[in-house]
Amino acid sequence: MQHSDIRMKKLYVLLNAKSGSVGTLAGSPDDLKRQLEQSGYEAIVDADSDASFAERMDRARASDADTVLAAGGDGTATAAAAVAVDSGKLLAVLPLGTANLLGRDLGLALDPETWLEQLPTLVPRQVDVGRVNGRLFLHKVAIGFVPAIAAGREKLRGRKDIIAQLAFLGYAFRRIARARHFAIELTRDDGRPHIDRVQALAVANNRYDEQLGHFFARSQLDAGALTLYTLDHLTVLGSLRLGLGVFLGRWQDDAALTVKTAQSVTIRSRHRQLKVMLDGEVETMDTPLHFEIQPRALTVMAAPAAAGAPPPDDPATDATTDA
């Protein structure tokens, strides 16, 4: 896909003021609007903390902007992606969260000032989206002990002191040590159910890479497959081994982990509801959980290198010129 196919002109910015690194923005939402307009874009910056996020999503969906810009973490990007897929708009991402997994996958600068310089050079990339019971996700949905660990992390949002970090690590290791097995019925593409006893299970949109120092990174976002990661006998010592393997880029062959692929998955449980972590956000979902992949359903702006495209010849002009 050539970068000249699609242009961002008018941006509807969904700014999440609670995101992990939103404090690194220089100034107020008005300053962000001014900076975007100085770069040649028309921008509406929605930082309305009095409205629910669902209301703000509806406003973005109904706007005449061609692009929804998610200014926040991975949860904000997922919400904005749902708007983009529903409305046919483009998605752009200003990574302001803690993990910024999608932003890293797209090759985006994590510093807002550098990102503003990078913005005119971004090119469109068509990527897959996952769905669970109709809900869109971009990275993964996890069940088991993972949502509880994510909830613990959420309580420390905004705290970067060493005491808070050590407290979280202690909490995470205790949750892993106490992790219980639970039974699920898992049905993949062939329609034959299989009973598993697991401690945790994640369904990912495409497959994670194995590279030195890369944590849950994906270079391929359009392979058209879900990847199932199942942990069935993880101990605290095993979690340290697995964490080291992730850092070293040799983790998907770990003895505690099973990896499978599918186009669709259904998970049944004796529980009517399960806690899940959906792209970093913890919530409760009704069972069964039905997962599917929608190939190349979302167009998102990415760095040229991450999109496999040459950089624009004249970025400043390309950002504002009609296709």
Rank of each mutant, 00 (worst) to 15 (best):
5 D>Q: 15
5 D>P: 06
8 M>L: 06
10 K>Y: 12
11 L>H: 04
12 Y>K: 01
13 V>M: 02
17 A>T: 11
20 G>T: 13
22 V>S: 08
23 G>M: 05
27 G>W: 03
28 S>H: 05
30 D>R: 11
30 D>V: 05
32 L>Y: 03
33 K>Q: 15
35 Q>R: 12
35 Q>L: 13
37 E>R: 10
37 E>I: 04
39 S>V: 02
40 G>V: 01
44 I>R: 07
44 I>K: 05
45 V>Q: 00
47 A>P: 07
48 D>F: 02
52 S>H: 04
52 S>R: 00
57 M>A: 15
71 A>S: 10
72 G>H: 04
74 D>N: 02
75 G>M: 00
77 A>I: 00
77 A>Y: 00
90 L>H: 15
90 L>E: 04
93 V>Q: 09
102 L>D: 07
105 D>V: 01
105 D>T: 09
105 D>R: 01
106 L>I: 01
107 G>D: 04
112 P>I: 01
115 W>R: 07
117 E>H: 07
119 L>H: 09
122 L>I: 00
126 Q>F: 08
127 V>L: 03
128 D>S: 10
130 G>M: 10
130 G>L: 03
131 R>A: 12
140 K>I: 11
140 K>Y: 03
141 V>N: 10
143 I>L: 11
153 R>H: 11
154 E>D: 15
156 L>Y: 06
157 R>V: 07
160 K>E: 15
163 I>P: 02
165 Q>F: 13
170 G>P: 07
183 A>N: 13
185 E>C: 11
185 E>L: 06
187 T>E: 12
198 V>T: 14
198 V>G: 05
202 A>H: 08
208 Y>K: 07
209 D>F: 07
220 Q>M: 10
224 G>N: 09
224 G>Q: 10
227 T>C: 14
235 T>V: 01
240 L>F: 15
240 L>H: 01
247 F>E: 04
249 G>S: 10
249 G>W: 14
249 G>K: 06
251 W>L: 01
251 W>R: 07
251 W>H: 15
256 A>N: 12
257 L>S: 09
259 V>W: 10
260 K>L: 13
262 A>P: 08
264 S>H: 12
266 T>P: 05
269 S>L: 03
270 R>F: 10
272 R>T: 08
274 L>M: 12
277 M>V: 12
279 D>A: 02
280 G>Y: 02
283 E>M: 12
284 T>P: 05
284 T>A: 10
288 P>E: 05
293 I>D: 07
298 L>H: 04
300 V>F: 04
301 M>R: 01
310 P>E: 08
313 D>F: 06
313 D>Y: 02
318 D>N: 03
318 D>H: 09
319 A>L: 03
322 D>M: 04
